[in-house]
Amino acid sequence: MIDYSAPDLTQHPPRSPRVRLGGFVHLPRLLDKARAFAAGKHGDYIYPCPMDERLFAFAGVDATAFLDAVKCGKSDTEMLAWLMEHLSPARLPHEILAWSDWLENLAPGDPRRHGNFATEIERMAPGRLDIVTTFDRLELDDYTAFGGRG
């Protein structure tokens, strides 16, 4: 059974980046990674990674302060309340929705990142033409890292 209060990311991946909490895409995954990092069970997952930093930048929240709040044992609901209290600037629901939609559909970006993206897709799932967003690649990587075949 998975213990989401201290997930062991050497045994299973974090939640999908598409899962939302309070309208924020990636937040449940970020919580899984932060909790695993705090417990020393993050495996190959990085906290904070560039995707985490995008959420912190949008929210105006410091990664260390977020991790300190996670270490207090707060639930997902309590961490959402903490995040909402610390948003800087304050965000309206439609802003959170627009940002989440943007992040969920984000592609690699510059030519170098596109090249790395293509190399990784070829390694994990040769011939897949449906992996086009960063979230698509993260989910594929999670799947193949734990024995799935792309």
Rank of each mutant, 00 (worst) to 15 (best):
R112C: 03
Y45H: 14
A107Y: 04
G73E: 01
G147N: 13
W82C: 06
R128T: 00
S100C: 12
G127T: 07
M1V: 09
R54A: 09
A6H: 12
L106S: 10
G148N: 11
R123P: 01
A57Q: 09
N105G: 15
T134G: 06
E78F: 05
K33H: 04
G23R: 08
A38F: 10
A38G: 13
I131V: 15
R15A: 02
K33W: 05
S5A: 12
D130V: 04
V19Q: 13
E139W: 05
V25N: 04
A125D: 14
I121E: 00
H12A: 14
G115L: 13
D62N: 14
L106G: 06
A145Y: 08
R29T: 07
D68S: 08
D141V: 07
E95V: 01
A118W: 01
K33P: 02
L80I: 03
M124I: 08
C49M: 00
G147S: 14
E78V: 03
P93H: 11
I2L: 12
F37C: 13
S88Q: 14
K71P: 01
P14C: 04
G23S: 09
S75T: 15
P7N: 02
N105I: 02
D101H: 11
K74H: 13
G109T: 10
M84W: 02
P111Q: 11
G22L: 06
R91Q: 01
R137F: 11
P93D: 08
L55I: 07
G150V: 08
A34T: 11
F24L: 13
L31R: 06
V19H: 08
T10P: 00
L83I: 14
V70Q: 00
R29K: 14
H26A: 04
W99A: 08
L103Y: 06
S100A: 12
Y4A: 02
D3H: 11
T133A: 07
L106D: 10
I2V: 14
T144C: 15
A107K: 15
P13R: 05
L106H: 09
L103F: 10
D68M: 03
P17Q: 04
D3V: 04
M124P: 00
E95W: 03
D44A: 15
R54V: 05
R123W: 06
H26D: 12
A81F: 05
D32W: 07
R128P: 00
I96D: 00
D3K: 09
H12R: 13
G43P: 12
I96E: 01
W102L: 10
V61C: 02
A81P: 02
L83N: 03
A98D: 09
M1P: 07
A69V: 00
D130Y: 03
L87Q: 06
P14V: 02
M79Y: 07
T119Y: 05
A63D: 09
M84P: 00
I46G: 00
L106K: 14
Y45M: 08
R113Y: 05
D62M: 02
P126D: 05
T144D: 01
L103V: 13
Y47I: 08
G127S: 08
D62L: 01
S75W: 05
C49Q: 05
D136G: 11
G109Y: 12
F135S: 10
V19E: 14
P7C: 02
T10E: 05
E104N: 12
Y45L: 07
I96P: 01
I46M: 07
P7W: 03
A63Q: 02
H26M: 04
M51I: 12
